[in-house]
């Protein structure tokens, strides 16, 4: 059970790092709207995955897990949004904060089942794949 949790956590951080490198090379091609969407999806998805997985591993430390998930969401949202603009930074920041506050509650309500965590990671993976596709097909007007 523990191996699944740490494996999924490492997987999602690797995914975020690969996406950041991919986006950083072509950040001049990305417009304002797509930048806002990218910041929202990256911050929210990383906060959601981190909160759900960490509350599975440490069920008795609710407050600490909430703080860590919110900080992760804020940091990742600010990093992804800071590539483009000031406003996209703000969007990613607030989206990561809100989702990080909510995520450990979802994990506690799911009664610690591993298939739910795998499905959540699948959802985050699908979001990042759509992000890749939207970036490849975008032309700045």
């Amino acid at each position: 059970m523990s191996a699944w949790i740490w494996g999924l956590l490492i997987f999602q951080f690797l995914l975020a790092a690969v996406t950041y490198r991919f986006l950083y090379r072509r950040r001049k091609l990305i417009g304002f709207h797509l930048g806002m969407n990218i910041a929202m999806v990256a911050g929210g998805g990383m906060a959601l995955g981190t909160g759900v997985l960490l509350i599975y591993e440490f069920p008795f430390y609710y407050m600490e897990v909430t703080v860590i998930a919110a900080l992760t969401g804020m940091l990742v949202g600010s990093l992804f949004g800071g590539m483009f603009d000031n406003q996209t930074l703000l969007t990613g920041y607030i989206s990561g904060l809100m989702t990080g506050m909510m995520a450990p509650m979802i994990g506690a309500a799911a009664s610690y089942s591993i298939p739910f965590a795998i499905m959540m990671e699948l959802f985050v993976l699908c979001s990042f794949m759509m992000l890749f596709r939207a970036t490849k097909s975008s032309r700045k007007t």
Partner: peptide, 24 residues
């Protein structure tokens, strides 16, 4: 098609939060 990403992600997150509200 540009806001497809935001609709996908936010619809899914809102559905999960609604399920959590129902369970609580």
């Amino acid at each position: 098609k540009q806001s497809l990403l935001a609709g996908f992600f936010n619809g899914g997150v809102a559905a999960v939060m609604g399920t959590m509200v129902g369970a609580v």
